[in-house]
Amino acid sequence: MNVTRRGFIKISGATAAGIAVSGMGFDLSPVKAHALTLKTKDAKETTTICCYCGVGCGAIVHTGKDKGRVINIEGDPDHVINRGSLCSKGSALSQLAENKNRLTEPMYRAPNSKEWKKVSWEWALAEITKRVKATREATFTLKNEKGQTVNRTTAIASVGSAALDNEECWIYQALMRSLGLVYIEHQARI
């Protein structure tokens, strides 16, 4: 018999008779005579595949209705590889998403500057486009020393990324190759 996650809940049956308190160690409210409520109750559930190693474990992401942010990520019991389990990194996935150290704005560092400056996406992408075009224009090679057609620039290199989705990878390499890059490399080489 295949016991799925939801099946497990049904089989074991939530006991409603327990005497417990919410927020153990923190809450001063009196002992309540009903079962505790899960923090994930009413949260949106989506499935994901862990972004760390190559095992490809499934996880369930609980996104809170109020703030629209992750409130819990745990292993997906219906995933046939990990069956609900996760290692230390996988168990910390929610802290990857909800992390005050994350970059949330494009930033720019000018030549010889000591600091980052917050910039807009529009500005950043427009400026990057200018840089790419300028470098490409200055260095584009139609023919190599032997006179063979090469249509490339070797003055721009791009590395990345095993952290991209397949679909992102495909358009990424297509774009880079269309620009004439041959220096295209990523994690598989190191």
Partner: peptide, 18 residues
């Protein structure tokens, strides 16, 4: 081969290599 990144297999399949 135990791949170290979640999509190092896929990104190699998609040829992010010179």
């Amino acid at each position: 081969a135990l791949r170290g990144e979640s999509n190092v297999q896929g990104s190699t399949d998609q040829a992010l290599l010179w």
